[in-house]
Amino acid sequence: MDGIIDNLQNAIQTWNEKLAEIWLLLTQSPQNFKGGGIWQIIVKIHDALLAIGLALLVLFFVYGVAKSCANLTEIKRPESALKLFIRFAIARGLVVYGMDLMLAVFEIIQGITETIMDTVGIGNVSQTVLPQEIIDAVGDCGFFESIPLWAVTLLGGIFITILSFVMILTVYGRFFKLYMYTAISPIPLSCAAGETTQNISITFMKSYAGVCLEGAIIVLACIIFSSFAASPPVVDPTASAINMLWSYTGELIFNMLVLVGTVKMSDRIVKEMMGL
């Protein structure tokens, strides 16, 4: 009978390990993720695109001047010339120091995420554990009674394992998005030089802030799930082993589906919050 229980316990152990890995990942910065090797590549790509961003900066600036100023006489006015100079200087600063700005935004939002973690305590996050009543009930079953139990634990174990990998892949995907935003940042930030194209830069920074904020949403989702884990599904000791196992596994998978769905929709939740 140990093999029947092992199917479910191994899957639950995998789930707990992935959940703990998520907490670890959400405390890391892009510079330290996977030893920092990926970040070095992103920095090289960013620096290579910096020259293109500066060239586009001039192009968008000239285009913005042509669209906003009706004639050369208007450009010669001191207030108009000062406004254009300030716009160009700010846009150039965004392109040249865009990576520093994005890292500052990440650090601010990361501080929010870490504050949430410190409030509940990382070590206090409850793990999912198979109740002893079910283990004892399965151990008392005969050979023929164990056949449906084996099927339930096998299917439940496969489903839980799939959910755990879907959840961790979503968190890894957030890091990929952070790297992509950072690498390509000189291009959209150069749009700030033109009055008619500045919305592209604003939307880009809002979207980047949204990706950073996804970490806080994922942490909140994990905390809520931990409350479910602290109060596991009620097991009826008078029911048969198959009913106990089926009821527990079904409710457990439902709770896991809620968490995985929330983690998967973290980007959508952030977009709704920020109006993106």
Rank of each mutant, 00 (worst) to 15 (best):
G275R: 09
K264E: 09
I45Y: 06
L163C: 04
G194D: 15
A230N: 13
G37F: 15
T203Q: 13
F228Q: 03
R174G: 00
E133A: 12
V58L: 06
V105Q: 12
L252H: 04
R77C: 04
G123M: 12
I200C: 02
E214F: 01
I184R: 00
F228Y: 15
N7T: 05
N243V: 13
G139A: 13
F228T: 02
P237Q: 06
V96R: 08
E114D: 14
T170M: 05
D2N: 13
I122W: 03
V96P: 05
S266A: 15
N32D: 15
A81C: 11
V96H: 05
V219S: 03
D118E: 14
K206F: 01
Q31R: 09
A216T: 14
I108E: 07
V138L: 07
S80F: 14
E21L: 10
N16Q: 09
S227G: 12
P232A: 12
S247C: 02
I134M: 04
R174K: 04
V152K: 02
E272W: 13
W39L: 08
A81F: 15
A209Q: 12
P78W: 15
D140S: 11
P78N: 07
L56S: 02
I38N: 10
S29Q: 08
N199P: 03
I202V: 15
L56H: 03
F61S: 04
L59M: 08
G123Y: 06
T153K: 03
R87I: 07
I218F: 00
F60G: 01
T170Q: 08
A48S: 10
L72R: 03
A230K: 09
F60D: 02
L94I: 03
I224A: 05
G261R: 05
T238P: 00
S29D: 13
I158Y: 00
G156L: 06
M274V: 13
D100V: 09
A48W: 13
T161S: 10
A48G: 01
F165K: 02
G275W: 13
Q31G: 08
L57T: 07
M205E: 11
S240N: 10
V138G: 04
I242M: 09
T197W: 09
E74M: 12
T153H: 01
K83F: 13
P131Y: 12
